[in-house]
């Protein structure tokens, strides 16, 4: 018989070894897999993306801007550019570069994967909003074209990513630009958010934090030099220009009126009734569809029936059926007091 203390110690050592081997991203295996070649390709693809974005925004790309975007020294950029040129993906002229049509297609393919993946994360998973971009930055270098097509099919050939950016089609089609930056509208305008820039990520996180989502309506109440006062979901907020410069909007459609301050379903107490006013825009994809299938549409009368033994999911009577919803889900459902009949 092996001494139990010895056995325990040996097993502990084996566990530690296995952990160091398989630790995701930092373990030995993960490091071995991320070889130098992959790193080079990722840099090249990121360079293409940066140049594509420059061209879209009509600014010239330089070695310096590229070095800044890739977090490299300018002299480290040269080999990347030469390689891209020899592959026929771009041409160099003076200070700037231009993508060839092949280079543009390549960049669009990467954008397509990136935006599709963000959409996938938003619709099909519970990955937090602030982590979408970061994960898509990795996936865009891994996915093949077939992977992208498969995801696209699975999602029902989506047109826009969750930030409102159009997703290039498989053949590289994109619609013309829509909307203007929030800063360009004037006091009193009522607008609808159609795009929120997801870079830099801390600015994006701040915008999300303030409850501004795609599709939400904003009334511009005051414009100052460094900030804008806006009315969102019944609350007045002050947006620094740094934030509002990352929000693209278009004039609100006339049929919709500005949203009132609303309560959410999760605030309902046992036995209380209310009418559904709508589902928050932050609730997307499968989750949103599921709620609507269950009968959560504007006008539905809901009542809170009971709380579970664990405290969290609560059961609501929705159109004659008892439906259990988690607190954060119920938080997405806006309600208003019942309209008095008669």
């Amino acid at each position: 018989m092996i001494d139990p203390v010895m056995a325990l110690l040996t097993a502990g050592a084996v566990c530690l070894g296995a952990f160091l081997m398989f630790w995701p991203e930092k373990g030995l295996i993960a490091r071995l897999r991320w070889s130098k070649d992959t790193g080079k390709r990722v840099l090249m693809e990121d360079a293409l993306k940066h140049i594509y974005n420059c061209e879209e925004e009509n600014v010239t790309c330089t070695f310096h801007s590229l070095a800044g975007a890739l977090l490299k020294e300018p002299n480290q950029i040269t080999p990347i550019i030469t390689r891209l040129e020899s592959l026929g993906l771009l041409t160099i002229s003076g200070q700037g570069f231009q993508l060839t049509s092949e280079g543009k297609n390549y960049a669009l393919r990467i954008l397509r994967v990136h935006r599709l993946w963000e959409r996938y994360l938003a619709e099909e998973t519970g990955v937090p909003e602030t982590a979408w971009h970061e994960q898509a930055e990795i996936k865009e270098h891994i996915f093949t074209e077939e992977d992208a097509n498969r995801i696209s099919r699975q999602l029902g050939y989506p047109r826009y990513d969750p930030h409102g950016d159009p997703i290039p089609t498989a053949s590289g089609d994109l619609p013309p630009h829509r909307g203007r930056l929030l800063n360009n509208f004037s006091e009193g305008d009522i607008v609808q958010v159609i795009h929120i820039e997801d870079e830099p990520s801390d600015v994006y996180a701040e915008i999300i934090e303030r409850g501004i989502y795609l599709g939400i309506q904003i009334e511009i109440s005051k414009k100052l030099k460094n900030s804008i006062h806006i009315l969102v979901a019944g609350k007045v907020q002050t947006l620094p220009v740094l934030l509002s410069g990352n929000i693209t909007v278009q004039p609100a459609p006339e049929e919709q009126k500005i949203e009132e301050p609303l309560q959410s379903l999760s605030s309902l107490k046992t036995g209380e009734e209310a009418e559904v006013a709508g589902i928050s825009r932050a609730c997307r994809g499968a989750q949103r569809r599921r709620l609507m299938d269950l009968g959560v549409v504007p006008g539905t009368v809901v009542s809170m029936v009971m709380t579970s033994a664990g405290g969290d999911p609560k059961a609501y009577n929705i159109r004659g059926a008892m439906i259990a919803l988690r607190e954060d889900q119920a938080g997405f459902i806006h309600i208003q007091p019942l309209k008095k009949v008669n």
């Binding site: 519970g126 989750q287 599921r290 269950l294 008892m322 439906i323 919803l325 889900q329």
Partner: peptide, 17 residues
């Protein structure tokens, strides 16, 4: 928290009579 990273997402359950 490891190979299937992500937050708990949607939950809806009908409680039949």
């Amino acid at each position: 928290r490891t190979i299937l990273k992500g937050e708990a997402s949607t939950f809806s359950l009908e409680l039949p009579p």
